[in-house]
């Protein structure tokens, strides 16, 4: 019923990351997701956006709705053209970090948003897609 929509936001600075969080929040509110669902999705977006910024050297976040032509739902795709991830399983494991972080971002985002896909090739960049359905 809702016309398909999409919005692509740059991820080049800390302020951009805040704007991506705000956009994801606004879309979640619009589709009546509850507070906990909103918070989980926004937090996952924050983790993935920061990774694209810090490790990927910047990139973009693309919001889309509806997903697979259904009634609603939101899909966010984070994309960068940075160095990529050689060992995805290792990057997903808790506590693994090459940047002095807690190593929680990737694995945590996957726990927060079950529908989580990651594609990465060394030298090619990284794409992470999270989806929440209505």
């Amino acid at each position: 019923m809702n016309p398909p929509r999409s919005e692509t936001l740059p991820l080049r600075s800390d302020e951009d990351l805040v704007r991506v969080r705000q956009a994801v929040r606004a879309w979640m509110v619009e589709q009546n997701f509850n507070l906990v669902e909103q918070t989980k999705m926004v937090t996952a977006a924050s983790e993935l956006g920061r990774n694209a910024l810090v490790y990927g050297g910047g990139g973009s976040a693309r919001l889309e709705s509806p997903v697979d032509g259904g009634h609603g739902g939101i899909r966010v795709t984070f994309e960068d053209h940075g160095p990529g991830i050689a060992d995805i399983a290792q990057a997903l494991s808790n506590g693994f970090s090459t940047g002095g972080g807690l190593g929680l971002g990737l694995g945590g985002a996957k726990r927060l948003v079950k529908d989580f896909e990651i594609f990465s090739e060394p030298g090619q960049g990284t794409r992470v897609i999270i989806t929440i359905r209505k």
Binding site: L35, T39, T43, G107
Partner: peptide, 14 residues
């Protein structure tokens, strides 16, 4: 800390 934030932190594993 808000309830939704607390729940999310636990799920995140922080």
């Amino acid at each position: 800390m808000r309830p939704a934030v607390a729940i999310t932190i636990v799920e995140l594993g922080l």
